[in-house]
């Protein structure tokens, strides 16, 4: 059983290095979307919450699991939607075609 612990610890250590490595060169304008995006990713606790509620055998466990699924769903769905809304603003800009407002004001 200690082997299982060791296997999880291995995953943990390796992932920690991957996590720091892949965001080392992020431009500061993307700090907010990155924070929001990783916020959505830890919403994977929804999977854990589902397993907890799905394995509940007492009323207390059912109540706690039910709450956990609600909270985790908020985290996942809210997280991804907010991030997408932020990143919508970063879409590649088409050459500015809306010249009309400028023409009408230039004397």
């Amino acid at each position: 059983m200690h082997n299982v612990l060791l296997q999880y610890a291995t995953v943990l250590i390796l992932t920690a290095f991957v996590g720091t490595e892949i965001i080392a060169k992020v431009p500061s304008i993307l700090h907010t979307p990155l924070m929001s995006g990783s916020n959505a990713i830890h919403g994977v606790i929804l999977v854990g919450s589902m397993l907890i509620l799905g394995g509940a055998t007492t009323n207390l466990q059912e109540i706690l699991g039910f709450l956990a699924v609600i909270l985790a769903t908020l985290n996942v769905v809210g997280g991804f939607v907010v991030t997408d809304r932020m990143l919508e603003m970063f879409k590649p800009r088409a050459p500015r075609v809306k010249e009309t407002p400028r023409d009408e004001v230039a004397p």
Binding site: A16, V18, I22, V26, S38, I41, V44
Partner: peptide
């Protein structure tokens, strides 16, 4: 997933 967010979050 948790460790990814934890590690990158601390760096961020």
């Amino acid at each position: 997933a948790g460790t990814l967010v934890g590690a990158s979050g601390i760096l961020l």
